[in-house]
Nucleic acid binder design. Structure first.
Ligand code: ZN
Ligand code: ZN
Ligand code: ZN
Ligand code: ZN
Lengths: 137, 137
DNA sequence: TCTTGACCCTGTAGCAGCTACAGGGTGCAT
DNA sequence: ATGCACCCTGTAGCTGCTACAGGGTCAAGA
C-alpha cells in the first residue's frame, strides 16, 4: 500500500502543498522516493497525518500537535502531560471566546445606535472618530 | 503642533514600527519631513490614527478600516454602507464565536473522558488517532 | 568641544500556517 | 508522438504586525 502525495492528500483531506509544508517543518518525516523521485507514503504516514489533521481541527497549534505526537509515542508514560496540554488549549479557546463576546457586545451597541441618516451624523463613525474633533470654526 | 513619530505613538498607544507599517501600506499618508528627515505629524494624522486604532480594537481588518476611512470622508453619503460593513463584521465575529464554542465543546468532552492512566490508554490521544489503528497482530 | 543618550531613519527578515505560483520532470494512454 | 494528470523544487505571497541591523540627528551635560 503505497500512496503518492496526491492520494495521501485525498485520503486525509489535506492539500498536497500542506503535506510538503509539514515535511519541511519536520512534522512529517521525509518518506522514501520512487524511481521517478515521487514521495511514497505508507500506512504509518497516513495515520500520523490523520492524527495531525484531527488535532488541527480541534484548534491545537502545530507546536502543540508536535508535542502530542511525541507524547503519544511514549506509551508507558502517565497521560497527565497530555491532559495539561489539552486543558491549556481549552483555556485558550475560552479566552478567545470571552474576547470575542466583548467585541460582539461593543459592535452590537454601535450598530444599534445608528439611526440611518448620512455619513455626517453616523453614530458608528462618530464612535470611532476622536472625541470632539470639530474645531469651533 | 508637530509630532514626531514617537510622540504620535505615545498619543495613540501605537508602536512606532506599526505607524511606519501603516504608512508603508498606505493607510496613513506620508507626512512632511523635518530638516533632519524626521516625520512631522499634525492633528489630522493624530485623528486618523486614533480612528484606525479604535476600529482595530473593534476587530475590523485593515481593509475594512481603509473602507471605513474612505466612507467617512464622504459626509453627504447615506450611511448604509457603513452599517453594512459593521454588520458584516459582527456576523464574522459571531461565526468565530460559534466555531470556538463547537471547539470548546469537543475539547471539553475529550478532556472529561480521560481517566488519568497511561498514555497507552489515554482517551484524548485515542480520539485523535485514526480509528482501529492496531493491526490484528 | 566632545560625548553621551534618546530619539529618528531605511531596509530586511521573522512570526503562524498555510497557499500559490513558475518552471521543470514522470508516467500512462491514445 | 503527444497529451494529460500528476509529481518535483524553490520561492514568494497572505495578515498584521514586530524586531532587528546599521546607520543619522539633536539637545544636554562635562
Ligand atoms: Zn445607519
Ligand atoms: Zn450610520
Ligand atoms: Zn488523563
Ligand atoms: Zn489521558
Amino acid at each position: 500500500m503505497e500512496l503518492k502525495i496526491g492520494a495521501l492528500g485525498r485520503a486525509t483531506d489535506t492539500n498536497v502543498e500542506t503535506i510538503r509544508y509539514y515535511e519541511r517543518i519536520g512534522l512529517l518525516s521525509k518518506p522514501p522516493r520512487t524511481g521517478g523521485n515521487y514521495r511514497a507514503y505508507g500506512a504509518p504516514d497516513l495515520n500520523r497525518l490523520s492524527f495531525i489533521r484531527r488535532a488541527r481541527d480541534l484548534g491545537f497549534s502545530l507546536d502543540q500537535v508536535r508535542a502530542l505526537l511525541e507524547l503519544s509515542d511514549d506509551k508507558a508514560r502517565d497521560c497527565a502531560t497530555v491532559d495539561e496540554l489539552a486543558r491549556d488549549h481549552l483555556a485558550e479557546v475560552e479566552r478567545k471566546i470571552a474576547d470575542l463576546e466583548a467585541l460582539k457586545a461593543a459592535l452590537s451597541d454601535l450598530i444599534a445606535s445608528c439611526c440611518g441618516g448620512t455619513v455626517a451624523d453616523c453614530r458608528i463613525l462618530e464612535a470611532l472618530a476622536p472625541s470632539t474633533t470639530s474645531p469651533a470654526a
